[in-house]
Amino acid sequence: MKTSLDHCVIHVSDWERSGAFYERVCGAEIVPDKVGFSLRFGEQQLNCHGPGKAAEPLARLPVMPGGSDVCLRWHGPIDDAVAHLAEQNVPVEMGPVFRQGAFGRGLSVYFRDPDGTLLEFISYDV
């Protein structure tokens, strides 16, 4: 049997603010839905739950805005990610630090979205 990650879900409290952040800071493609949107990163997607969107089924304990941890792969040196975050006025909470990711050992920086979700850029260009 072979599987791969297709999508997972985060919860946002403000569609406009979150969409602008993920597009500008994380390079997401905004995929509109009847209510809200999903965030596409190449072949992977973050579906978003938020105001006015009734989703079924849900996890037993649905995640609240700011309750997720998400790692995105940064293609290039981690110093470029740090510079990009500085240009976007997004504070780095931790890093660069070595972490283990899907492709082995990489360098990561941690920051937060407007709701407080912990985001990580990991670079394997070390």
Rank of each mutant, 00 (worst) to 15 (best):
T3F: 09
D6T: 00
H7V: 05
H7A: 01
V9T: 13
R17K: 15
R17C: 09
G19M: 14
E23T: 09
E23R: 14
V25G: 09
I30D: 09
I30Q: 03
K34I: 02
G36I: 09
G36F: 12
L39Y: 05
L39T: 05
L39G: 06
L39I: 03
R40E: 06
R40P: 06
E43T: 10
Q44G: 01
Q45F: 01
K53W: 08
A54T: 15
E56S: 12
P57I: 04
A59Q: 08
L61K: 06
M64H: 13
P65L: 08
G67V: 03
D69L: 10
L72H: 02
L72T: 08
W74H: 08
H75N: 11
G76F: 08
I78N: 07
V82C: 12
A83Y: 08
E87F: 00
Q88V: 00
V92S: 04
E93M: 02
G95F: 13
G95Y: 09
F98T: 14
F98S: 15
R99C: 11
G104D: 11
Y110T: 04
F111T: 06
F111E: 04
D113M: 08
P114Q: 10
D115M: 00
T117K: 00
L119A: 06
F121P: 03
I122R: 02
I122C: 12
S123A: 12
Y124R: 01
Y124L: 03
D125Y: 03
